[in-house]
Design a protein around this nucleic acid. Structure first.
Length: 308
DNA sequence: TTAGGGTTAG
């Protein structure tokens, strides 16, 4: 359905506000690629975007990880004289953040970092976005580095900050640093939060401390899909295949969480580690027939390992 | 009419 286009046919000439509202509507309804298409239509009809239009389109590019269009929009920003990164007494911070975040979300970290350093004013969300992007795109060390800069700058990290840096510790296998973050979130009293707990389980498992991973996991009052999955994968990754499978059985008995594609990567790899061919085949079938999860290339990879 | 942050796999 393209409700906007129907309206479009009926209105001979739209102004920039109308176009912008349509684009914003698509962005706010999770139709980022549709928003980008509308923006391109608008451009081809020579309606000049304003700063607000550009913000919405940049958000759309970030959400759909469309770096190519994002760069075009960025040059359009400069062309129209709106560049918030050139010295100006009153830079548009919303636009600056939208440009930065587009590069960060699309994984162009060098440009994102350059803009981050030039940002006219930084708040905690911008810091968190920089840290999260480094972590997500495999630069865990940089994520931790920006975290220390954040402390030096006098900001107070919050839950989102810790989710990223705890995850980064797991990727680095830095147990000591992970433990210090654990102490920090205990003091902040956000340890019972299921997301924080999940990040800790993952960190401890990846750092080789299975006992602490189990402890954090069992202390969690509510366990969602991601929490169960982290525990199962953490056990499977470190040679506790049997325990991973009994944990998966408990998960299936928990009405509050149901397995997803990622859970099954853990389950199937546990079966292959332990050499349980039939159980692996049974889980593969169950994944499709009971949970309606279509296998991905990773699932097939686990099955190949299992059968070879 | 204006944005933006998070954990699980690969």
């Amino acid at each position: 359905m393209k409700p906007g286009l129907k309206v479009l046919d009926e209105i001979p000439k739209w102004n920039v506000v109308a176009w912008t509202s349509l684009i914003a509507g698509y962005v706010n309804n999770d139709c980022a690629s549709e928003a980008i298409r509308v923006f391109k239509d608008m451009e081809s009809l020579n309606v000049e975007p304003n700063e607000i239009t550009l913000v919405h389109v940049l958000v759309a590019c970030a959400r759909s990880r469309d770096l190519g269009t994002g760069k075009l929009v960025h040059s359009r920003v400069r062309q129209l004289g709106y560049d918030p990164f050139v010295s100006s007494c009153n830079p548009n911070l919303v636009l600056a953040t939208a440009i930065f975040d587009m590069y960060a979300k699309c994984g162009n970290l060098n440009t994102a970092r350059d803009l981050f350093d030039k940002m006219p004013k930084r708040n905690l969300v911008v810091w968190n976005s920089m840290i999260a992007s480094y972590n997500q795109y495999g630069q865990a060390e940089e994520a931790v580095g920006v975290f220390s800069d954040l402390l030096v700058s006098g900001f107070d990290p919050d839950k989102a900050t810790f989710l990223s840096v705890i995850s980064a510790c797991g990727k680095l296998g830095d147990l000591a640093l992970g433990q210090s973050f654990h102490a920090y979130v205990l003091k902040m009293n956000i340890c019972n939060d299921v997301a924080v707990g999940t990040a800790l389980v993952d960190m401890y498992a990846k750092s080789g401390d299975a006992e602490s991973a189990r402890k954090v996991f069992s202390d969690l009052k509510t366990k969602d899909t991601k929490a169960w999955t982290s525990m199962i994968i953490g056990l499977a990754m470190h040679g506790h295949g049997e325990e991973a499978l009994t944990t998966f059985k408990r998960m299936q008995e928990d009405a509050a969480a149901s397995p997803d594609q990622i859970t099954y990567i853990g389950v199937l790899s546990a079966c292959s580690h332990v050499g349980l061919v039939e159980e692996g085949q049974r889980h593969f079938t169950e994944m499709r027939n009971v949970y309606g999860i279509e296998p991905t290339i990773e699932h097939y990879g686990c099955m190949v390992d299992l059968l070879s």
